Computed example of a mutant assay.
Amino acid sequence: MFNRFTPVENSLFEEFKRLEQEMDDLFGRWPWPIGIRSASRGSFPAVNVGATPDELDVYLFTPGVDPKTLDISIQQNVLSVSGERKSARKENANYYRQERFDGEFRRAITLPEDVDPDKVEARCENGILHIKAQRREAAKPRQIEVK
């Protein structure tokens, strides 16, 4: 078939490819995770946040974490969750690959301003920490009747 690119365009693409390779060599390749199941370092536990007009639901996926060791607090609309996940290791074993996170962690999530810090509940079941925060009554939408 016909080549759509002229020799000048081909050399230009080759130059861009060479430049990309030099940048990868200089700065390293892909500092972010690759793949749908990958998570960047420091992002344990995984978090889902959902909201309704009445409440905010935060789910933290904490398998292998003792719920009694979790520290949960709210200060100036920032929800902080910290704890530690420990894993059993054999002293004489050489680990060639270790994908499971262990150690201390801390996650901070900025909450909407209308969340009432006095109406927050936390429950942990099957490695899922569910934090439910109610919105302030004054911030909830209300219907005004016309007379």
Rank of each mutant, 00 (worst) to 15 (best):
V8C: 00
V8R: 05
E9T: 10
E9P: 08
S11P: 11
L12S: 07
L12V: 06
E15I: 08
F16C: 11
K17Q: 10
R18P: 01
L19H: 08
L19Q: 09
E20V: 09
E20R: 14
Q21Y: 02
E22R: 14
D24M: 01
D25W: 03
L26G: 01
F27E: 05
F27R: 00
F27H: 04
G28N: 00
W30M: 00
W30E: 00
W32E: 00
P33S: 05
I34Q: 11
G35P: 04
I36P: 01
R37T: 13
R41A: 12
G42D: 03
F44V: 11
P45Y: 07
P45V: 13
P45S: 09
A46Q: 11
N48P: 06
N48E: 13
T52A: 07
P53S: 05
P53H: 01
P53L: 04
D54V: 15
E55A: 13
L56S: 06
D57M: 11
D57Y: 10
V58M: 03
V58D: 04
Y59R: 13
Y59A: 10
T62W: 02
T62S: 02
P63Q: 07
D66R: 08
D66G: 06
K68S: 14
L70V: 10
S73M: 04
Q75S: 05
Q76Y: 07
V78F: 04
V78N: 09
V78S: 02
L79Y: 03
S80D: 10
G83Y: 06
G83N: 10
K86L: 13
K86W: 06
K86Y: 09
K86G: 07
S87E: 14
S87H: 09
N92L: 14
N92R: 13
Y96I: 12
Y96H: 12
Y96P: 13
R97I: 15
R97H: 15
R97P: 06
E99S: 10
R100E: 14
F101P: 11
G103A: 05
G103H: 04
E104I: 06
F105I: 05
R107S: 10
I109P: 09
I109H: 05
T110I: 08
L111V: 05
L111H: 01
L111F: 01
P112Y: 04
D114Q: 05
V115A: 00
P117E: 00
D118T: 12
K119D: 11
V120F: 03
E121F: 11
A122D: 10
R123E: 11
C124E: 15
E125A: 14
N126H: 12
N126W: 07
G127C: 02
G127P: 08
L129Q: 09
H130R: 12
I131R: 03
A133N: 02
Q134D: 15
R136L: 15
